[in-house]
Amino acid sequence: MPTLFDPIRLGDIQLANRLVMAPLTRNRAGAGQTPTPLMVEYYRQRANPATGAGLIITEATQISPMGQGYLDTPGIHSPEQVAGWRRVTDAVHAEGGKVVVQLWHVGRISHVSLLPEGQAPVAPSAIRAEGKTFTRNGFEPVSQPRALALEELPGIVDDYRRAARLAMEAGFDGVEVHGANGYLLDQFLRDGSNHRDDAYGGPVEHRARLLLEVMEAVTQEIGQSRTGLRLSPVTPSNDARDSQPQALFNHVAERLAPLGLAYLHVVEGHTGGPRDLSEQGASFDYAQMRQRFGGPWMVNNGYDRRMALEAVASGQADLVAIGRPFISNPDLGRRLREDAPLNVLDSKTLYGGGAEGYTDYPALEEATGA
């Protein structure tokens, strides 16, 4: 069996190893939600596959102004944003790395202060989520959304298609569609947030329609071999709830299989929290879903060195995505390979700010004096 440090091919994307830097929102975009030189350095530090990630998945990146849900998150819908991301991809490729952009529409997880002309967030149904978002005033409860009209949905699909095309113009190796963590596509999937009575609500087949239309549009635009997807079957993040997640996500996996995606990225358990939610009635058989999908399988959530090595060696997964340890350890790949100690994460600098807690974490030789 392969190891975490062996190469793998995802469609048209050849990776030097199977360690993936998971998408991590850091709220450091500049004016116009544009990537900054500081962001260029942040991704460059983690890009060399000899010491960092085989693949970087960028922070979630909104596909339109209405897709934004948090302060100072980057977009990929304007020429200035494309130019900013091109500087990031050039820096990653100069280090020998590979990078895909995560395409994001937050749906109802937003605040009127973040949206054009103070508009209400959009959602499958006019149901406010129990959650907060990050604004100029700090963390605030999300705003009451309005339900998207049926005639608006083709425009949402086109926004994803256009963002995928712009990602190729920006030099990305591919895209990952964000279908997880209670954001717009996940909101359509789940019966807790989708109470529609049209072709996009009701039975599982209808609730999965928008996600599948988006995936078909993106693969048609840039090719299936450069398109991935992230899902989180049982996470309660952002008030994501469904009465029958196993049936829902088994169906989604079956419908995705013919598309031949580069990979499926699955969050196990509560995103950024407990992996085992069986006590809350959220047990889930990921093997059922994987069997139905049939393609490259990326796992995520709380993986340490031992778990990551075992996941790949046992065949449980093809790749392992790790998040927060990559924040404080730009050379996480080297540290895992050598079983070296990790830098301690400063949680106070996660969201917003400058270089502190972003680009100033030391590499192994700096930390140890080696």
Rank of each mutant, 00 (worst) to 15 (best):
D339Q: 02
T135C: 04
G202Q: 09
G260M: 08
F249G: 09
L319T: 10
I109T: 04
N181E: 01
I109C: 05
R230C: 04
E176W: 08
M307Q: 15
P141A: 12
H195K: 13
I63F: 14
L103V: 12
N48V: 05
G54C: 13
P49H: 01
L189E: 00
S232C: 04
A126P: 11
D346F: 09
L256P: 12
E213A: 14
A163R: 06
D90S: 11
D239M: 06
A123L: 01
S283I: 08
T3L: 09
P74C: 05
S314C: 14
Q288T: 14
G323F: 08
A199Y: 05
P236T: 06
G118A: 05
H111R: 03
G333T: 10
G11L: 02
R86E: 03
I127H: 09
G333P: 10
A247N: 05
S314Y: 11
D197Y: 04
D191A: 05
I76F: 02
S328E: 08
M307N: 09
E140S: 08
T133R: 03
R335T: 00
R18I: 07
A321R: 09
Y183N: 04
Q220I: 10
S243K: 00
T271V: 00
R207I: 11
G67C: 01
G323Q: 06
A91I: 08
E279L: 12
E221C: 08
V99M: 15
L336H: 02
N17R: 15
P2D: 15
L24I: 11
A253L: 05
V101N: 09
S64N: 13
R305S: 06
L103P: 10
P330Q: 08
A317V: 07
A321C: 10
Y43N: 01
L342G: 10
H93Q: 08
Q102D: 03
G182H: 03
G260P: 06
T3F: 10
R305D: 03
Q102M: 04
A94H: 12
T135D: 00
P258A: 06
V112D: 08
G96A: 10
I156N: 13
V88F: 10
